[in-house]
């Protein structure tokens, strides 16, 4: 059964179209990540699923039921917000129990669910504290706990990690992945961080300017992007785009080459001047320039490379992507030569 499905959803604020013709299905137990640049409509889409915003047209189904006119609290969802959104005048325990009290659950049920959630998230020591007495990471865990206790059919996360520092973000990311394994509930997760998307998702939905660009598993999107935008958005460092004419006189297409697909090789097809070298220990990132186009290569291990030297890279032709000038993927790799 599909846990959530959107069909032909459009949304406008006044004359501004924010979402156009969105169709997405989320399967039972699936972890789906919406990813896209800032302002592309991710949060708006999530708020439409939650019922905090009405779609201008289109249908939202949750667990098989149409919920277009159902208020947020009756949709069987729980939401975690970017700003935590904890009730500042209630302590952690009361923050978590508020929704259950609204549902008129019995005291025993409330106690049991809080105990379970707080054990899961290591919140036992903080139950009597107020949000202002917690660190950012603890607040985020409370926010997640508040969602868990409701035992929803669908979790919605809106950039839950973006206010945390890098180390804590990696930790909490893992915690969310574990949470999904333990609960097996469907989750929709919004982020503009491609690493979060790649590591967490069963499937990724890439959005741009209110449109769905591509939907697929992380590896499908990485190996087989439908256009230049998706190709450039996923993967870090980002894919290189080089005019094909550099390698092949008269070719007007654009070449896409992942930094990790490049190796140093004498007589390689791609040669440039080294601009900058990032030694990461395990990896070495080389940023080089061919004519006035900058590109990067990610080399495994440590390499002694000097700034300013010329360098030659080779690559496997199978790992080349071709795009036309509008950014669409060209699958016929030999044609388009003029």
């Amino acid at each position: 059964m599909t846990a959530m499905s959107l069909s032909n959803v459009n949304k406008s604020f006044g004359d501004v179209k924010v979402l156009r013709d969105i169709n997405i299905d989320v399967e039972e137990g699936e972890f789906v990540v919406f990813v896209g640049p800032s302002g592309c409509g991710k949060s708006t889409l999530l708020r439409i699923i939650a019922g905090l915003e009405d779609a201008t047209s289109g249908d939202v189904h949750i667990a098989g039921t149409q919920v277009n006119d159902t208020p947020p609290s009756k949709r069987g969802i729980a939401m975690v917000f970017q700003s935590y959104a904890l009730y500042p005048h209630l302590n952690v325990r009361k923050n978590m129990s508020l929704a259950l009290k609204q549902e008129r659950q019995s005291k025993d049920v409330i106690e049991a669910r809080i105990a379970k959630a707080s054990a899961m998230l290591n919140l036992d020591d903080y139950l009597d504290r107020y949000p202002s007495e917690l660190s950012g990471g603890q607040r985020q865990r409370v926010a997640i706990g508040r969602a868990i206790v409701r035992e929803p059919k669908l979790f919605l996360f809106d950039e839950p990690l973006s206010n945390l520092d890098a180390a804590l973000r990696a930790n909490t990311r893992l915690e969310i992945a574990n949470l999904h394994d333990a609960l097996k509930t469907s989750m929709i997760y919004v982020t503009h961080d491609q690493t979060e998307a790649m590591t967490l998702a069963d499937r990724i939905v890439v959005l741009r300017d209110g449109r769905v660009e591509q939907i697929g598993t992380p590896m499908e999107l990485y190996n087989n992007p439908v256009n230049r935008f998706v190709a450039g958005f996923l993967g870090s460092p980002a894919m290189n785009f080089i005019p094909a004419g550099f390698l092949n006189d008269g070719d007007t297409r654009t070449l896409g080459l992942r930094p990790e697909a490049l190796q140093i090789s004498d007589g390689g097809a791609l040669h440039g001047t080294v601009q900058h070298v990032e030694q990461l220990g395990g990896d070495t990132n080389v940023i080089a320039r061919i004519k006035d186009v900058q590109f990067s290569a990610r080399l495994f291990g440590q390499h002694a490379i000097e700034q300013g030297q010329t360098i030659q890279f080779g690559f496997n032709p199978d790992q080349l992507f071709y795009f036309d000038n509008a950014g669409a993927r060209l699958y016929d790799e030999t044609s388009a030569r003029e």
Partner: peptide, 27 residues
Amino acid sequence: VSDDLKNAARVDGLSEYAIFFQLVLPL
């Protein structure tokens, strides 16, 4: 008063009156 906070309360099932009296007024 942050929108997220009011929206969190809506998801938690508080009515608009409850949001007004229990959340916004204390703040």
